[in-house]
Amino acid sequence: MSLYDDAVLVLKGYEDQPDLRQAYLDHLAAHPDGMWKACHAGHLTASALVVDPSRGRVLLTLHRKLRMWLQMGGHCEPQDTSLEAAALREGTEESGIPGLTLLAGGPVRLDRHPIPAPCNWHLDVQYAALAPAGAAEAISDESLDLRWFAYDEVADVADESVVRLLEATRARL
């Protein structure tokens, strides 16, 4: 199965945010290249919010280009076999934590946000990743900083999309 086909199946199975879910499906139907950064009308991305439920905390990255505290995530790559695989790869690469596991049940949220031209839109499929006990993070080249925040600190440092993702993740835990 192609990454495109996987994305369509994942989105069809996602039961929340029906209008946004349909917008993602419509985008893919109109853009066979809608999984890739080269699609200037916008493209799907995959992200993973790394959480440590036993300690009530979340790992955020200070994005090098955007200079915002965000979850781990980014563009799909040709070796990704599924959206889950892309989210897990991004989470692992950007957190430096081996052994992350995605929270069962598929995506936690969808978030469409504008980005600078030529790409115009990211249609982010957001997962939650559980950090293993004793996880030690390691900063990547894509980040200015990497830091654990208590759940109740996230609203003070991150934008509303990250806060909504954390709320949805905590509801699933």
Rank of each mutant, 00 (worst) to 15 (best):
Y4D: 10
W148I: 07
T92S: 12
D52L: 03
L144A: 01
L130H: 06
L103W: 07
A171W: 03
A104D: 15
A85R: 04
H122Y: 08
L146P: 09
L60M: 13
W36I: 00
G74P: 08
L44Y: 03
K12F: 00
W69L: 10
A129N: 12
A23T: 13
L165H: 15
H63Q: 10
S140I: 02
E77W: 01
A133M: 05
M72T: 11
R164L: 12
G13P: 00
V51G: 13
L100H: 02
S143Q: 07
M68W: 02
A87T: 10
D124E: 11
G105W: 04
L49I: 09
L11P: 05
L60H: 06
A85Q: 10
L146S: 04
E77C: 00
P98A: 10
G42W: 02
A133Y: 06
R67L: 11
E84R: 09
H122F: 02
T81F: 03
R112W: 03
I139Q: 14
C119V: 14
L103N: 01
D33R: 06
L165Y: 09
L88M: 04
L3S: 06
A86T: 05
S2R: 04
A117C: 13
D16W: 00
W69I: 14
W121P: 06
S161N: 08
G73P: 11
A38V: 03
V154Y: 15
E167I: 07
S54W: 12
R67K: 09
R170I: 15
E94K: 10
S140W: 00
S161I: 02
L59A: 05
L110Q: 09
G56A: 08
C119P: 01
H43M: 05
L62G: 02
L11H: 07
A155K: 13
P78L: 03
A133D: 15
Q79F: 14
E90Y: 00
Q22G: 04
Y151M: 08
D6L: 03
P18D: 08
W69R: 14
R64K: 15
D6N: 12
T61K: 13
H43E: 06
D26M: 02
V50W: 04
E93V: 13
W148S: 12
A129P: 11
E160A: 12
A171L: 12
A133N: 12
K12L: 15
L102K: 11
R57Y: 11
L110V: 11
E142I: 02
V157Y: 14
M35D: 06
H27D: 14
G34W: 09
G106D: 09
L49P: 11
V162F: 07
K65N: 06
D16P: 00
G105L: 06
E160N: 09
A30R: 15
V154I: 14
E137M: 07
E93N: 09
P78W: 04
L25A: 06
R89S: 11
S82I: 06
H75R: 10
